Every structure is written in C-alpha cells, then in structure tokens.
Simulated scan of single mutants.
Amino acid sequence: MEPRKPSESFVVMTELVLPNDTNVFGNLMGGRLMYWMDIAAALAAGKHCNAPVVTASVDNISFEAPIKLGNVVNIQAKVTRAFSTSMEVHLSVYGEDLTHQYKYKSNEAYYTFVALDPNRKPRPVPPLVPETDTEKLLFEGALRRRQLRLILGGKMKPNDATELKALFQP
C-alpha cells in the first residue's frame, strides 16, 4: 500500500449556526458540534484510506469558547496516524463572528476510525508519512493516545502500554 501524507486527508467543513442548533443561551449545542465533527473526521479518514469508515472512539472534546447563534463554524480535520486498520483524526474547530470579523478557536478533539471492506470487516489502511513539524508531533503522540484509549476501553493492560510507561520512568 502506498503511504499517504496528512495533507491528502485534510478536510474543512463549514456550517452556519442557526436557531435550531442552539441551546437556551444562544450557544451552539455540544451534541450538534460533535455530530458535525464526526462527519468531518469521517471524510478525512475516508480520504486517507479510500474506503468506508466507522467511528471507533472519540477522545476528550474540550470546549474552550462557545459558538454563538449566527456565527460560522469551521472544522478542520486531518489524519494524524494510521495503524493497521484504524486511523486517528485530529480536529480543530473555529468560530467566526462575521459581523465583527473575528475568528476564535472553539475546541479540538481526536476521533478514531476503522476502515471497512465490502463485508464490513476491518481492512488495512495505508501508512501515514508526516511532513511538517506539527504533523510529526501529532504522529508521535498518537501512539500514546492510542494506548490510553485501549487501556480505558479495557483492550490493553496498563503494563503493556510501553509508550505511556516511558513517559513516567526515568
């Protein structure tokens, strides 16, 4: 399988926050944003592997700033690492107040997707070759994040998480 670059999976999704997307405070509902993020992440993962994908996990979505009614949401998604059949996707979300011409970071998260074959079974994905310094940092950290996800999901014993253990051992 030919290795792919993170830039080849890059997706930008734009949405306008309408009244039906907001809570009683006029802020974009977190669940609606997570829905949009899932779509953007799936598009990025699908671009990387050129196959159907399903969401396997969502890591710690941190909300830094609310996005208000009438603002624009820009979601940027890019594959940060490919494993055998899964891919980690990093998402950055920005709000944009068009009236005041102001852009701000709203949140970020990591999603994990699994590629499927025609029988809906996991299939191998192309390796990822990071190019920029930022892509290399995200790529290196992906193994630790993956081990943490596997431990929390009960699929790995903490003692087997060598990358995580290396952070805490002299």
Rank of each mutant, 00 (worst) to 15 (best):
E2M: 12
E2L: 15
K5S: 13
P6L: 01
E8M: 08
P19R: 07
D21V: 11
V24Q: 14
G26Y: 01
N27M: 04
N27Y: 10
N27V: 11
N27A: 05
L28E: 05
L28Y: 04
L33V: 10
M37W: 04
I39H: 12
I39G: 15
I39F: 15
A41D: 01
L43S: 11
L43E: 14
K47T: 03
H48K: 03
A51E: 04
P52E: 13
P52R: 06
P52M: 10
V54P: 06
A56K: 05
I61R: 04
S62H: 13
F63T: 02
A65E: 15
P66Y: 06
L69Q: 04
N74D: 08
Q76I: 12
A77N: 03
A77F: 04
K78E: 12
V79A: 04
T80Y: 03
T80A: 08
F83Y: 04
V89S: 00
V93I: 07
V93E: 02
L98E: 14
Y102Q: 13
Y104V: 05
Y110P: 00
Y110H: 07
T112V: 11
T112E: 00
F113Y: 07
D117N: 07
P118H: 06
N119M: 03
R120W: 10
V125H: 00
P126V: 07
L137R: 11
L137G: 07
L138T: 02
E140W: 11
E140V: 10
G141I: 05
R144L: 14
R145K: 08
R145C: 01
Q147M: 10
L148C: 02
L150K: 08
G154Q: 08
K155G: 08
D160G: 14
F168T: 12
F168R: 12
Q169W: 12
